[in-house]
């Protein structure tokens, strides 16, 4: 059987901006309370239009698990690495906190964790996935903005969404080839 290629597909049109995902992530992953410590976040995109013709979108974001991985390239100790499934992870033992990866990341998705004494970021909750559970943000979302799954499985929710809906990716000009897809 072909190996898995994990990805998250987001339908942000549904996003309520309720912050359930960000709080779930903090508990799940021991991310400390603080404005500079977060693995995932929800941005209120700028309000468009003039009263009363208004439009606003909300955009959850996080580490994009880039296939072309800028943070991995700059890591002097190989602490940042990619799993066979394409999940970008940090080996906290190897991290020397040089923060080169934080500078290299186009998505501002990394931060210094006191808990791990390392730079850290979204892991796709691989500790849950390995137990057959969904990532915490996927599971807790009231409206199911995110779907997590295997791009190599044509019947997975992620594959079906991507084959049926147009999508975009964040900062395509950086040529990072993210594993996060935003359906339109």
């Amino acid at each position: 059987m072909e190996k898995k290629r994990y990805a998250i597909v987001l339908d942000t049109k549904k996003c309520l901006n309720c912050k359930a995902c960000t709080v779930a992530c903090k508990f799940e992953n021991y991310v400390p309370v603080g404005d500079d410590t977060y693995r995932i976040w929800v941005t209120e995109l700028p309000l468009q239009g003039k009263f009363p013709h208004l439009h606003q979108d909300f955009q959850p974001s996080q580490c994009q698990h880039c296939e072309n991985t800028p943070c991995e390239k700059v890591c002097p100790t190989k602490a940042t690495f990619k799993t066979p499934e394409g999940v970008v992870l940090v080996d906290y033992e190897k991290c020397i906190l040089c923060k080169a990866c934080m500078t290299a990341c186009p998505y501002d998705a990394r931060f210094v964790s006191e808990h791990h004494e390392a730079v850290e970021k979204c892991t796709f909750c691989m500790h849950r996935v390995s137990e057959g559970r969904e990532p915490a943000c996927v599971e807790t979302c009231p409206v199911r903005v995110r779907e997590f799954g295997d791009l190599n499985d044509p019947n997975s929710r992620v594959s079906r969404l991507l084959s049926s809906r147009p999508y975009m990716q964040l900062k395509p000009e950086k040529n990072t080839r993210p594993r996060l897809f935003y359906v339109l």
Partner: peptide, 19 residues
Amino acid sequence: NPNPKNVKSRGMLCAKGNA
């Protein structure tokens, strides 16, 4: 964690519920 089977909450848990 949310209870995925609960028919009322439909498997969701909001920010407050998590907190």
